[in-house]
Design a binder for these strands. Structure first.
Lengths: 355, 355
DNA sequence: CTGAAAGCGCTTACAG
DNA sequence: CTGAAAGCGCTTACAG
């Protein structure tokens, strides 16, 4: 029953280091708790992890000493021993975009609820940085990787992703369908929703419908563009001259419209791939004294809230970052049992004044 | 010169585990590299860390084996041995707000550039969750904690923060001045900028200037409110009836204006504490056929880009998330040498049509 | 310049 | 039900 090992005094055990904080103040270890409680570290470990069988007496002593010393399990040592950390990486295209930040919030909340931490990596458009990070995943003993990238993934990246589960890393994709690579994915109905949006414009008599968004490079953008093209082609109204491949920003929306008018292009509707572009386009139309929606109808893509407060209020294709967060948690659990699946969230048209 | 230790075959060394991925495929360890290179692990470690002195021959052999096996240092083991991880936590008030997400992006980029990872924790308004996380910081062996919270911090939280450096954790505050607690801080000139903004309105003949933002609870919001109050009091124009303590959202802006008009309150200018509130207020004014800026002037607070695309374009007090990111990096470095300091970023009035 | 050995702080068969 | 001991994968005095 006597303490198993006597630890010798260490240099940093000195009560007060007057030389400034060069040597961090020491923190109690499990051995300190065991010593104080008069039990073994094995018992302390069992008590704290609720594992194995421990008598009430031992449990009480262990808990008492733990609280007294304010002991916290060192998660690094724990990670080394268990073979994995308690963190999941979220690889996000651009945290500045509302969709991504809203999703990040959901995902962090979910992970926290199951005791995991979130490592955030903002990828931007650099494939090199992405690959560099991916190479480190296994050696960091990450529990999982959630990939929320709108850029099309290179084969190299997909290969790296595919191999992660072999090392016990759970992989979930958001925004692009990687289920054919056995990677659980949650996507939104980009194509179908765009088709419905364009049909709506056609039904309301629009003849010259422009597209303002990514048509290549972006996995998500391409889906939308293809929906646009399909719906217009079916109606015999597709005109490549009305397609602009532009960034998601406000300025891109405004500039595209300005260029169109300089060229004397006629149009009576604009489908954009983001609310930012839509608002930028509306500003340009407003400044050219074009009436919305009488002269030109506008439909955005994205955040439900924001568009409600511009005037005229923006009709938009709904976005569901919160739902994405919820579904990620489902996939995250089911992937733990190695079943790759696909979850599709339905977007829908939110009608307001602009179209 | 012969390998120092012979590792016996382990169960998971079996070439292919047919039973499904229950046992993660093994990853080479430093010992594997040492064995393959015919050197000691000490040498491999020195080669990979660029520490100590190593002969060219040893270096070549170490590197060759490392590349051949695709070896990556296990960062958990490294962390346990070195006594710290390579990660810094960012505690953020609400990642959905553009200011925070823009800042997060900067901070992550900076940390990455010095080889550190970013752990993201979205605090919301829960002091309990914040404290719980803070309690784990030392046991996670975090390198640093960056606190970007607009809510006023409780004494408990400040105490916890203050003690972190004793354990080798760098602490930096964003948005509130904690320098009196020896915590390096970067803030923006909330008070001064609001004073300047209100003076501008007064100089342009506005008499009934409302305030629409947080006046308590939020550290940042309170600073702004106090600037508002000071400027108006100095002019003998302060009227508490024109102050609304509302959330930062669009809807809060709209509803506040709607309520004001229901009450028959007269006003000819609105200073808001965020662009969201400003845009919400503009929508309400527009819907009531109130002309901006002739009848009512509006000034927002925040993102420079967004307001440029609403109509009329929004006059706003500038926000500098990117600068904050840059300054955090400076403080992060200087705090490593234990000097607490305060950095103030100047906000300024960006004049556009709304005021 | 190089290696053998100790040790970071846990968890978990194993033995009793 | 409990403890002694091994070991996760590194780094770093220490000795040569």
């Amino acid at each position: 029953m006597s303490p198993p090992v006597r630890r010798l005094a260490q240099p940093h055990d000195a009560p007060d280091d007057k030389k400034g904080a060069t040597h961090p103040t020491s923190v109690p270890t499990m051995l300190d708790v065991a010593l104080a409680a008069g039990v073994s570290t094995a018992t302390v470990s069992r008590v704290l992890n609720g594992s194995g069988v421990v008598s009430d007496a031992m449990r009480d002593r262990g808990m008492a000493a733990t609280n007294e010393l304010g002991f916290q399990l060192n998660s690094i040592a724990q990670g080394l021993r268990k073979g994995h950390s308690n963190t999941v990486a979220l690889l996000v295209g651009d945290i500045e975009q509302t969709h991504f930040s809203a999703m990040t919030k959901q995902v962090q909340g979910y992970l926290e609820s199951i005791g995991l931490d979130l490592l955030l990596f903002n990828v931007g458009h650099s494939s090199a940085r992405l690959e560099h990070f991916l190479r480190r995943v296994v050696s960091m003993r990450l529990r999982g990787v959630i990939v929320a990238l709108s850029d099309k993934l290179s084969d190299t990246v997909i290969d790296m992703l595919v191999k992660l589960p072999e090392h016990g890393v759970v992989v979930v994709a958001i925004g692009q369908n990687l289920s054919e690579h056995k990677i659980a994915s949650v996507v939104q109905s980009e194509r179908e929703a765009t088709i419905a949006s364009i049909r709506y414009l056609i039904e309301h008599g629009r003849k010259r419908i422009a597209y303002l968004g990514k048509s290549k490079g972006s996995a998500v953008g391409t889906e939308r563009y293809e929906g646009y093209k399909e719906a217009l082609s079916a109606a015999g109204m597709y005109d490549p001259a009305l397609v602009w491949d532009v960034s998601y920003r406000y300025s891109a929306g405004r500039e595209a419209i300005e260029r169109a008018y300089q060229k004397g292009l006629a149009l009576d509707a604009v489908q954009t791939g983001s609310d930012e572009r839509a608002v930028g386009a509306m500003a340009a139309l407003h400044d050219s004294n074009v009436h919305i929606p009488d002269d030109v109808a506008i439909i955005g893509f994205g955040d439900i809230e924001r568009g409600a407060y511009v005037r005229p209020a923006l009709t938009t294709v709904s976005n569901h970052p919160a739902d994405v967060g919820v579904h990620v948690s489902q996939l995250f659990n089911s992937t733990l049992s190695a079943k790759a699946s696909l979850l599709v969230i339905q977007r829908s048209l939110v009608r307001r004044e602009s179209a």
